[in-house]
Design a protein around this nucleic acid. Structure first.
Lengths: 238, 238
DNA sequence: TAGTGGTCTAGACCACCCA
DNA sequence: GGGTGGTCTAGACCACTAG
């Protein structure tokens, strides 16, 4: 499992808070106490506590201690890099994915720009429609570099592509940039989604990078307006 | 003043990257070299580098080194807790704020819920309209606890309320939770904004907390659809 | 093998909070 | 004054990357 000490401490408390075993307002043991009870050094304890703080689980107060926030059990944290499959599990709604197309094509202009390709370069395009409560509300258009992912099958696309990339291809996803905007619905949006006459869709553009800083995926996630929500937790930087 | 060593190192590189003096792809000095050139310890250097990494300025590669990303100069980082005033400066567009109302009122139901108040409790309401390129595109509705902010004047509201709170009242803002969704425009939206017939607005709900974990402000920022953009940088968590 | 970043240790001094 | 978190130090061992 290769679990670090500080990650181990973080996990224990993060899970405890998320499961409600540790209630908001509770004071955590001091760094000195944690140090003893985990038989480790203070800096290691502090790494764990800082992780908990950065994730919004606790608040640290100089001279007082660390206190549990009630933000940890926050409604659906769509923040970060959470994928549709992880998310739909959390919200516990009837959801279903329909794979519309999976093929290698010449990159369309928008994708050439997004992935910084040569005009006419090949990309692997995967178009999926997400259904929640029997309504088609999300259109996902993914573009991968064939040199890296090879050819994706429909079966893979039906599940979690991230799971496949990380566990089978052993690719390590490192970071991503997201852009959220609202745009006029295209003809494709109208055909593949149940828009009920809504004129706009929320577009989430996602640029995904690997550990070696290679940009390897571009995703356009097109959501029906009324089914879109994004939650963000932010700390004030000094 | 009072600048930590690791914050100092962070600032030097962050500014260098943002100003373009350090170009993307550049390899940073190794931790050992930085340690010597700043006459400090390695853990301190690492704190600075981790900050740079968390902010998307660099990528660290085991066994190789730290490399500058081209994400640091990212377009309008509305992520985090950036306020309108800070932002409008960055995008460099003609912008103007019109203070519509500033008064203490009984909290409306939605605000009672958001700030967890007793029904009928007083709140300080500030309604402002943001103009960009001579179009009224953002409606900001702020609600503060009068016990903390007292009475805000129109002059203060015309500038940056955050500046006033932090520099005059010495309040320390610690963290915030944001929720982004799209909703049907209200009558008030139609009156105060130039919606050009658009039926929906993007609503950003902001819950702001102080250092002692007090929730003290609730903000509703209502944006015209086509003028809304949100950029997010996320790292994959282990 | 030499250099890199990732983790950990056992101390230290400081500023802050509260009794 | 005793406890708390914030910062820093000078070592150590490991896993990874490279030539």
């Amino acid at each position: 499992m290769k679990e670090n000490i500080h990650q181990h401490i973080f996990n224990e408390y993060a899970q405890g808070i998320q499961a409600g075993r540790i209630t908001p307002g509770t004071k955590l043991p001091s760094e000195n106490e944690l140090m003893k009870s985990y038989s480790t050094s203070r800096e290691t304890v502090r790494k764990a506590l800082n992780l908990l703080m950065q994730h919004g689980y606790i608040q640290k107060l100089k001279g007082k201690g660390s206190y549990v926030l009630d933000m940890g059990r926050m409604n659906f944290p769509i923040t970060g890099l959470t994928s549709f499959k992880e998310m739909s599990g959390k919200i516990g709604r009837a959801s279903h994915t329909h794979v519309h197309t999976t093929h290698n094509i010449e990159a369309p202009p928008a994708v050439v720009e997004a992935l910084q390709l040569e005009p006419g370069a090949p990309v692997c395009e995967v178009i999926r429609v997400r259904e929640i409560d029997n309504e088609r509300v999300i259109l996902d258009k993914d573009y991968f570099l064939p040199a890296i992912v090879g050819r994706l099958t429909a079966e893979i696309a039906a599940g979690s592509i991230y799971e496949y990339l990380e566990q089978v291809l052993k690719l390590v996803i490192s970071y991503a940039k997201k852009e959220i905007s609202v745009e006029v619905a295209t003809i494709e949006d109208r055909e593949l989604l149940d828009l009920h006459g809504l004129s706009h869709v929320v577009v989430v553009r996602n640029f995904v990078y690997l550990e070696d800083t290679t940009l390897f995926q571009y995703t356009e996630s097109r959501h029906r307006l009324d089914k879109f929500q994004f939650v963000d937790f932010a700390r004030r930087m000094p």
